[in-house]
Design a protein around this nucleic acid. Structure first.
Length: 491
RNA sequence: CGGGGUGUAGCGUAGCCCGGUAUCGCGCCACGUUUGGGACGUGGAGGCCGUCAGUUCGAAUCUGGCCACCCCGACCA
């Protein structure tokens, strides 16, 4: 079976680390907190990028690229923005090295000090709004709908592969609008794009909501988010979409002349998802034997493993395998025929299980004679003999079935792990023993949210968009509350 | 950044208390036999024991500094 040592039950985080490294997704690098995304991991990220990029284009956005360095002074222009990011910024102070006159190696050349330090972007609002000032004069220049794929750096205390790394890859959309209404619509639209993507491609259900005041993006008027639940009952913020109001337009003096000839500040949004989604993907579906990938994001959806004793048999099986490859490819299925003679079938089975390939086809001499193949699905480990005739259609249906099944299981888990608490005792017990989302009344104050966090480690993940307003009393203070919010322990 | 733990071959480890340059498994290489769930045999290669300094005739082992990683806190996508 697998050579896994960790299990989800015994040590969830050890299990996660082991999956990431053993399945060849990523590894720690020579730079603290920064990871190397390996080819098998990067291939998944590329698939995500492609799908998301298409969705952005479909909704009218275009890509551009802004510098990774931001003049320090830009940061202080929006007060809450600098407050939010100041503690985690990498700063470039010099631009030259020289040989160490006292010995070996190189040292920073102190004479090459920058006039103004550069900040390695933790996000690009400031440089982008500085630039937009030059691009926007009239309502005719609006809306401006731009996305960029980039790396950003946030100097985190504690890092975990994909979930929180010092440098990470993401996309950040930055849009400018003539009206508040249009900007809010954009914010909500992009949240839906994210939610749909995560549901339809990653097979993960999410809760759409808005963040409370203190969980809001630094500089945003409102932060919308999608929250997903992992197998261990902890929540993961999977994406955010911010309505920035006129905060950045004011900070960077971006005005436009409206149809009435009056000068107004523009309305802004920004939205992003990152390589953190890789962590969500891995944690949502995988099991104690390794990675489980939803077919829509699996770089290789089907692998064919030949079983043979001699060249003659291999030749015969290869002919069949190559035909199947061709048939699957015409259906748009990505398939790999692993005819390496350097590994045995059993080894390959275990390897592809570890790597999460959704469907495996094994073809041996008996299959060649009987006109069958052995089909195994990664998610359920189910194996069955299937007629070689019509295999492409069969596999296509199976891939869809797996995709759906992964989602169904994740949805069932989310439903099972979502509870309501009406008393503090109930709340504590649910958070500590059951985990997952707990809906409860909250008095709306940061003080109470902080106290609840101190007592239980649970935070308010969001105020769900679709929940009805109900009168009640705050779970902790008993003060009146108009709506239940979702609590959970989070990543 | 605080508390705890770990660092020995590509990976996982024994040795450390009681100083004498290193154990075992997997992997790797060669040859042969094998191939329907991580094959077996025989032979072989690979380690200045995280790093720097100190103690000592002699350090993986003792002492100190540093670095990295893991776990728990504070912070966060």
């Amino acid at each position: 079976m697998s050579n896994f040592t960790a299990t989800r039950e015994k040590d969830y985080s050890a299990w996660y680390n082991e999956i990431v490294t053993k399945a060849g997704m990523a590894e720690n690098s020579a730079v603290r907190g920064c990871m190397v995304i390996k080819p098998d991991g990067y291939a998944i990220w590329e698939k995500m990028q492609r799908v998301l990029d298409d969705k952005f284009k479909e909704t009218g956005h275009v890509n551009a690229y802004f510098p990774m360095f931001i003049p320090k002074s830009f940061f202080s222009k929006e007060a809450s923005h600098v407050d939010g990011f100041a503690k985690e910024c990498a700063v470039v102070t010099h631009y030259r090295l020289k040989n160490d006159p006292n010995g070996k190696g190189v040292i920073v050349d102190e004479t090459a000090k920058l006039e103004e330090e550069l900040i390695v972007r933790p996000t690009s609002e400031t440089i982008i709004w500085h630039t937009y000032k030059g691009w926007i004069q009239s309502y005719r220049d609006l809306p401006l709908l731009i996305n960029q794929w980039a790396n950003v750096v946030r100097w985190e205390m504690r890092t975990r592969l994909f979930l929180r790394t010092t440098e990470f890859l993401w996309q950040e959309g930055h849009t400018a609008h003539a009206t508040e209404k249009e900007a809010i619509e954009e914010t909500e639209k992009m949240l839906d794009v994210y939610a749909d993507f995560v549901r339809d491609y990653m097979a993960i259900p999410v809760i759409k909501g808005i963040k409370t005041h203190n969980e809001r993006f630094a500089g945003a008027v409102e932060t919308y988010c999608i929250e997903a639940l992992m197998q261990d009952g902890k929540a993961l913020q999977a994406g955010t979409s911010h309505f920035l109001g006129q905060n950045f337009a004011k900070a960077f003096d971006v005005k436009f002349t409206n149809k009435e000839g009056k000068l107004e500040h523009v309305w802004a949004t920004s939205w992003g998802v990152s390589t953190r989604l890789m962590g969500a993907l891995i944690m949502s579906h995988s099991d104690d034997n390794g990675l489980v990938l939803p077919p829509k994001l699996a770089p290789t959806q089907v692998v064919i493993v030949p079983i043979y004793k001699n060249d003659e048999e291999l030749a015969k099986i290869s002919t069949i395998a190559n035909e199947i490859v061709k048939e699957l490819k015409t259906q748009g299925i990505s398939v790999k025929f692993d005819n390496r003679d350097t590994y045995k079938p059993g080894w390959k089975f275990a390897e592809y299980e570890l790597k999460g390939v959704p469907v495996r086809i094994a073809i041996g001499p008996r299959d060649a004679d009987n006109g069958t193949v052995e089909l195994a699905r990664r998610d359920t480990k189910e194996k069955k003999s299937v007629a070689r005739e019509g295999i492409a259609t069969y596999v296509n249906n199976l891939l869809n079935e797996i995709q759906q099944s992964l989602y169904d299981i994740a949805l069932e888990r989310q439903t099972r792990l979502t509870s309501e608490a009406n008393t503090w005792e109930e709340f504590e017990q649910l958070i500590n023993e059951k985990g997952g989302f707990v809906a409860a009344h909250w008095d709306g104050t940061t003080l109470t949210a902080d106290k609840i966090k101190d007592l239980t480690k649970a935070t308010i993940r969001c105020i769900p968009l679709d929940s009805a307003k109900t009168q009640g009393k705050c779970i902790l203070t008993g003060a009146p509350s108009e709506q239940k919010v979702l609590f959970a322990k989070a990543y």
